[in-house]
Write a protein that binds this DNA or RNA. Structure first.
Length: 125
DNA sequence: AATCTGACGGGCA
DNA sequence: GTGCCCGCCAGAT
């Protein structure tokens, strides 16, 4: 059976990665894109989230600055921040505090069996 | 068909 | 540090 080529598995992969984000951790659109081999297409990750099914912890995906740029797409604009706070993440003015501390890089933590050690992490926070 | 937009990110001034 | 521009590519108008 042939599937539509325009319907890349990329979208499904995005949801899969987002599902794997641990509670209390966050990642960025670009990090997911890079993990999927589309490093320059972070926008597509954001666009994929546009149609994300229920049950996807989309609130754990923010932009590279730790800003809750997608909050406006939730049922209520404050839902994203509230969910993050409920997981122990401080959010002030749509900005995640200590972003580097909560950052979860799929490329670094999904493919390596070694202990987690981030050598380079966002300098925000 | 052409053009603009967008839940983004990196590079450069 | 901030601000601007470019690349990315699917959808909407």
């Amino acid at each position: 059976m042939k599937k539509k080529q325009t319907e890349h598995n990329f979208f499904g992969d995005v949801y899969d990665v987002v599902r794997l984000i641990p509670k209390g951790r966050v990642t960025s659109y670009g990090a997911i894109a890079q993990y999927l081999g589309l490093k320059s297409s972070a926008r597509m990750v954001g666009w994929a989230m546009h149609g994300c099914p229920a049950g996807i912890p989309a609130h754990r995906v923010v932009n590279r600055n730790g800003l809750l740029t997608g909050k406006h797409h939730f049922k209520t604009p404050d839902l994203m921040a509230q969910r993050l706070r409920r997981e122990g993440i401080a959010v002030v003015g749509d900005k995640i505090q200590h972003f580097g501390d909560h950052f979860w890089d799929p490329a670094a933590e999904l493919s390596i069996n070694e202990p987690i050690r981030r050598k380079t992490r966002p300098k925000i926070g």
